[in-house]
Amino acid sequence: MPHQYAWEDYFIPGTQTLKNLFGLVDPEELRTNEEDTVASRMLELQTAPVPGTFDLTHIRALHQHLFQDIYGWAGEVRTAPSADQSPMSKDGVAYAPVDRIAPIWTTERARIAKKPTLLRGSSSAADFSTRLARFWGEINHAHAFREGNTRTQVMFFEQLCEHAGYSLDIARLAPQHPETLREAFVDARYYFQLRGDAMPLAETITQVLTPLTKQTAVDPPQTAVLKASLDSQEQNRRFPELRYVQLDPYGLSEESPAQNDDSQLS
């Protein structure tokens, strides 16, 4: 059974540094080591995607793979803040309370299962983005993990998009990309959380989608179990941006961890 962490349990006592398997206390040193290590784990997914059916179990497996070297709670759904504390938030935008994480995933997954073509068979990238954006917005609002949500989400949705017949250019979501959409991407997710309107996120996603010339999967998401390995030609087609990068290939590290806004805990 996963450990039930209180908010303060995630931190090294007397610090604002997350407890980590490196034994590091300095937050900047932890950030650097975390980015490097997660980048390596991202590269591993180039040849061995984590199989799954695009549900909470699947994204937990992705998080566990990416953060297994860093946090003892990798792959575990966060259990804090509690109901009597201020919600987990970033830039003043609150995420779902812990008792809503699983229900959000259940609702969204059921919506997809009820209509298998919801994320497949779209007539255009814009149509697919419109269908996808609400799912992404809800999953981001759930914010299942204490840290590393964005990096896990982009790997999850890159895999889902490929399954649906599209290439998701997540490199353009990085701030250092010459044609970056990072700011628009972040703002659009916040906009969904505040307004419940997924159109800005859909418009952003549309700009980083390209239809695949060859369908790589034929089953609907609720029955798909993706292959654990691909031949070399397929690897290069799927993840060309990963061939030469070394550190944090997507530049998607959380620049500052999401915080609980309770001043006593900050």
Rank of each mutant, 00 (worst) to 15 (best):
Y190D: 00
Q264Y: 00
L43E: 07
E35P: 01
F145I: 13
K19P: 00
R172H: 15
T216A: 03
E162P: 06
S123R: 06
K114V: 02
P103A: 10
V154C: 09
L168R: 03
T107H: 08
D197F: 04
T15M: 08
L212P: 06
E28H: 13
A74W: 08
L212E: 09
A144F: 08
F22C: 11
G92P: 14
S124G: 11
V50Y: 05
A184F: 04
D69G: 12
P116L: 04
Q85L: 02
G121R: 15
C161D: 02
A74D: 08
V208G: 03
V77S: 13
A224T: 02
H141Y: 10
A184L: 03
K115L: 06
T216Q: 05
W105P: 11
L43R: 11
L132T: 10
Q215A: 08
A96L: 04
R41Y: 01
A110M: 12
L265K: 00
G251H: 05
K115Q: 09
S123V: 05
K115D: 06
P13I: 08
W105A: 12
A39G: 12
D248K: 06
S129W: 15
H177F: 11
C161Q: 06
T106S: 06
L181D: 10
L118K: 04
K214N: 12
E8D: 02
V77Y: 10
D231P: 08
H143K: 09
Y71R: 04
E241N: 07
V38F: 14
G72R: 04
A61G: 03
P87C: 05
P240S: 12
R60M: 10
A110S: 06
F135W: 12
G92L: 12
T117G: 07
G75E: 07
N149I: 14
H143S: 13
T106H: 11
Y244P: 05
I112V: 15
V93H: 07
A74S: 04
P200C: 01
R189D: 14
L45D: 01
Q16N: 03
Q16A: 14
T53V: 03
Q215K: 12
R182P: 03
E34T: 10
F145Y: 09
L252M: 05
L247G: 14
Y71M: 02
R31Q: 12
P81L: 05
Y250F: 07
A224Q: 02
L56H: 00
W7V: 05
R146E: 11
L18K: 14
T107A: 10
D55G: 03
A39I: 10
L173E: 13
N149A: 15
T17A: 08
R41D: 00
P13R: 08
P249E: 13
I104Y: 10
G23S: 07
V186T: 09
I170F: 05
T206M: 06
Q46I: 13
E234C: 06
A113D: 08
